[in-house]
Design a protein around this nucleic acid. Structure first.
Lengths: 223, 223, 223, 223
DNA sequence: TATGAATGAGAATTCATTCAT
DNA sequence: TATGAATGAATTCTCATTCAT
């Protein structure tokens, strides 16, 4: 981009060595770059130019692999859902004592949203578009039934052992757990501003996790 | 350039009646239109042209009053914060029995976010920009200290009468209450899709409000 | 311009006290402001808004008095020509010994162009437009014949007393004297840059005046 | 929006043949067109649209190569300085007898400014901006030290052979020579108007060159 | 004589996408 | 598989000027 002009009029342009031909690597690089760019600027604010630059790939190549900005966005969405669900599965919640399982799920959700701030940002963009892209995805529903199944199992085991209250809808609870973490972190800039309080400091983070755990277990666990 | 001199021969064009000269009304119309447009498309996706059209205002007038897209966005943010806080104040929570006060706050938050889906959408956009605009606002912090004060009062009264647990941070609780509503509604399209379940149906809405109330009071109220 | 928005929605706008009605003063203020703005930015780069602001006058008033940007520009041109010629006349060159007269004319031209950098800038703009505006001016030619007359008189007196060489065209000489000053000062930024030398420093100024005087008298004065 | 689907029914539109893919040629065409446009209208008055049209290039391509109007302007400036200095070098002044060398330099400067009226116009624009663009140029100073060197050499040779006076600053002299030509031609429209005399006629041109040569040599050459 | 509100016609610049190799 | 060159359709913003009082 810089000083492209004129120089080419006299000096032999140092032609960029063409990228090694590695289809998989190129696609991965593009997806990574696109995820970051979409997360940072939203769908409308994202720039194909910047994605190409971040991925160190010729812009044309993005179209070669992903056809359009919108399809690229969908590919990113599918990818991030796979990532989170795959990590979630490794929690092995079905093999853990119910109270501890809930505790871990909350902690995991919290930490994941800290490690991956892009996740909620991307979903915000997608919701702005009323899930237009996701609805075209075949894989995504299949990805989520195990999650609901697992949580239902934990709740049922808790209820049977008399620890948890009855009648808790696993989907409602999952959304609540996610909301408690994601809303806080996704809105941390505006919340910090309006409440004039640093909500991302180390102490604030500890307090938040503790508050969320208390809230959910205070509700779930029978007296 | 072309046939200018002939134009006068044409049928008198129905010139759009010039807008009434009412500065306040114009500004209000612009703000309303901008709020809707930004909510629908985000900051980057919003189009000044569409805002002008929605407001039935000459595009130039927007710049006359608001200078730029970004300043207009800030003006919208300030406006929606004022709106919600103003409605919230009318709940008169300080004059109500604590458990009922919490119940009403949850219900209000839930209903407000249903009536004003644009609120969360606008905040998502602002968070994407790390509250860059809001941080330039003088008014916004002042707007929020009464809210925290009110909630602190409710919690304290509840604690003194032995109904609520002690040690609850009002800011944490407020964020949780907001999160439970706003996360659900703000992500309702993706959540409906991934869980393959209509989360906006009348029954679903009732269930959600009930779940949230149970969750918060189940935590707050001592056994 | 600043914070116009919103404020008017609630606070009663402090209506600017209307300017005292003084037609002459308003016109003078506008002309001064326009001269500076045109000098600073050229005709195309000048902004009617800024002129109004500089003149502390409502923009509409400029049109009331001067009709259009172009006519305002012409008014400015006529004004600056009047100013310089009027000062020049006060040199009383016809009553001074020829060599000294030339010396004074050079010094005057030099100092005037230092005191009034806007003069050359305005003329550059006008020349860009091939003197389109000046050609519409009635006054301007009349303004200049005395000048030529005066210089012719000086040259003739010098020749008769055997001091000056014969055959010097007063118009050519005047243009040369003007050019030596105005070209230097009008191009001082680029010249300083390309020659990497501070041509506006106090020492440089003294040297320039001395060089110009040597040059012109070295030519004029017979050996 | 309108009748898109019908368009294919229309007569095949004679699509402008896409421009040959020749990066260097495109850039050169843009530079040429930009030079003319900037010279004709100044920086503020120049229109990117017209430059694109003149260059027979898609407007977008200008930004592809030059990034912005201002950078394009700088590129033009560098280009014209290179052009004039390169022609000047071919005068081989160091190999010519001093008096003749000065004569040729004056004649060259005069003729160049007649052949290239855009040169001074462009510099006027740049001076209006206080050489803001040029100051960012790396090349431009380097381009000018040979010129000063050459002129110093001529003056020194003239002095040593007893023909020229001593103590002449080559930079001052160069600026004077340039000023005598460029001021005359750069202001020829206003000067012709105010003096009511055709300064661009063939006779006037001859007289001017002769006057300038007399002036400079009358000063330089010892009696 | 003076002013705030309003506007149409551009202006520079941006952007996703396609072409040609 | 990979790339530099090229483009059409917007998009934000600007500007001289006019309207209505």
């Amino acid at each position: 981009m810089v000083n492209k002009q004129i120089s080419s009029l006299r000096v032999a342009r140092p032609v960029a060595a063409p990228r090694q031909r590695d289809a998989d690597r190129s696609q991965r690089d593009i997806l990574d770059a696109a995820r970051d760019e979409f997360a940072l600027h939203g769908l409308a604010g994202a720039r194909m130019d910047r994605i190409a630059e971040r991925a160190a790939v010729n812009k044309r190549l993005i179209y070669y692999y992903f056809e359009s900005k919108e399809r690229l966005f969908l590919a990113v969405l599918e990818r991030v859902y796979e990532d989170i669900r795959s990590e979630e599965q490794q929690l092995n919640l079905t093999q853990i004592e119910p109270t501890e399982a809930i505790r871990r799920l909350i902690a995991f959700t919290w930490n994941y949203s800290i490690r991956h701030p892009e996740f909620q940002t991307l979903l915000n963009s997608e919701n702005l578009h009323r899930a237009r892209h996701l609805k075209q995805s075949a894989k995504v529903t299949a990805l989520h039934s195990p999650l609901v199944q697992t949580l239902a199992d934990v709740l049922e085991r808790g209820r049977q052992s008399g620890v948890f209250r009855a009648g808790v809808d696993p989907v409602q609870l999952y959304i609540s757990i996610a909301g408690l973490s994601y809303f806080y972190l996704g809105n941390v800039h505006t919340l910090s501003t309006i409440f004039d309080r640093p909500l991302l400091g180390p102490k604030a983070k500890v307090e938040r996790l503790s508050h969320m755990t208390d809230l959910v277990l205070g509700y779930l666990v029978r007296d």
